[in-house]
Computed example of a mutant assay.
Amino acid sequence: MRAIVIEEFGGPEVLRPAELDDPAPGPGQVLVDVSARGVNFIDVYQRAGAYQVPLPYVPGMEAVGTVAALGEGVDSLATGDRVGWAMAPGGYADRAVIDASRLVPVPDDVTDEQAAAVLLQGMTAHYLTHSVHPVAEGETVLVHAAAGGTGLLIVQLAKARGARVIGTVSTDAKEAVAREAGADEIVRYTETPVAEAVRDLTKGEGVAAVYDGVGRDTFDASLASLRPRGVLALFGQSSGAVEPVDPKRLNGAGSVYLTRPSLAHFVADRDELLGRARDLFTLIGEGRLNLRIGGRYPLEEAGRAHEDLTSRGTTGKLLLV
């Protein structure tokens, strides 16, 4: 089968096509014929060595496909079922073996591409807006990179819960995309100091929560944008890791809360995993959650997809198909 294999950490060039033997499912596992794969920053972090993984390694933490074979003891699925997963590796290949406990069924009214575009980033947006800081009606929240794959989903889920959403973007085109998703206010971080703009937009109060997947470049502005006892959810580091923080800064910012959450800890329970996926698929099927596919690439061009993702020039979700 075709696969993308990482044999050493580095830039996009280490994502090399290879031919591997078809894997076989063991007890409790499922062999999946993969049809679509999400491209995510966690794949970038693993490829670069920021998140250590054992080498050689087949990346791809989010994918969708069809059940090809069942391992011993798997009775909850059947061959031919459409399934997807997030936070399990191996998606950058024609076939992958995944623990049955990590798979979610994909309903008929959701396409493979839609499922691959929403499972990792969508469940991230879901746990951020429903669990880390459950958005309350009438609150104002700040979403960084509001035109990105995760940002667009956070904007929509926060709006669905009744929030006023301020989004940060860098260009006219990205502003249009973020506003289409429901962002009420836009801050051009390339032109205006973000915290200053947020204070102006909230009449000095600050926001109830900041959803920050950018990291180093935005952290100080995020902290300065919070209202007293607000929540800074630092869920990514696309610009680099944040330097160590003196806890006294949280006091000075208004007794605010700082958390560095991970999707893995919010889908560790299977009922929680299925519930988040079900909520998202229902919204898609009902036309209440719009997915923007920002680029489709053949599997062999995974390196180009990584280059485009990290360039900050894309909007929406990138897929390997």
Rank of each mutant, 00 (worst) to 15 (best):
G294S: 11
M87T: 06
S35Q: 11
N290I: 00
P59E: 06
L232M: 13
R2Q: 15
R216L: 14
Q114T: 04
R288M: 03
P107Q: 03
L103W: 11
L153S: 05
P59M: 02
V165G: 13
T315S: 15
P298M: 12
V207L: 06
G254W: 02
I4P: 12
A302E: 05
I166S: 10
V64A: 14
P298G: 13
L223Y: 02
G148M: 05
L103E: 09
V242H: 10
L77A: 11
R47H: 06
I4S: 03
V321T: 15
T282L: 06
Y189W: 12
L157T: 05
A18E: 11
A208Q: 14
Y189K: 00
A63G: 15
A302V: 07
T315R: 08
L283F: 00
T79E: 15
R102M: 13
L263A: 02
D308H: 10
L280Y: 12
V5P: 01
D99K: 12
T66Y: 06
A69H: 11
G213R: 04
A78W: 00
V187A: 04
L280H: 13
L299Q: 06
V104T: 07
L273Y: 05
A3P: 06
L77E: 07
G138N: 11
V106N: 05
L291S: 10
M123E: 08
L55N: 01
G65R: 10
A224W: 03
A147C: 03
V34D: 03
S101V: 14
S238P: 08
L291W: 10
L15W: 09
V118C: 10
D112F: 01
V214E: 06
I186M: 04
G149F: 03
I154K: 01
E243Y: 07
V231W: 14
V210R: 13
Y92E: 12
R276Y: 13
E185A: 12
A69G: 12
S255Y: 14
H126M: 11
G295K: 05
R304E: 15
R292L: 15
D43K: 04
D112I: 02
V177P: 00
P105K: 13
T66N: 09
P107T: 03
G313K: 07
K159G: 05
R288A: 14
S76R: 15
G182F: 03
D172V: 14
N40D: 13
F235P: 00
I42N: 09
D271N: 13
R199F: 01
K248D: 10
L20G: 04
M123N: 07
R260A: 06
F235R: 02
V256G: 04
Q121H: 14
G167C: 07
G213D: 04
P193G: 01
T282C: 02
K317V: 14
P59T: 04
V231H: 15
R161C: 02
V32E: 06
E7V: 00
S255D: 15
V245A: 10
S101A: 15
E300G: 03
R260E: 01
R37Q: 11
G295D: 06
V5Q: 14
G11D: 15
V198P: 01
Y57M: 09
G49K: 06
T192D: 09
M123P: 00
P193F: 02
G287E: 06
D217S: 15
I166R: 09
D200N: 08
G65E: 09
G182E: 08
T168L: 10
V34R: 04
R227N: 04
D217K: 08
G11V: 10
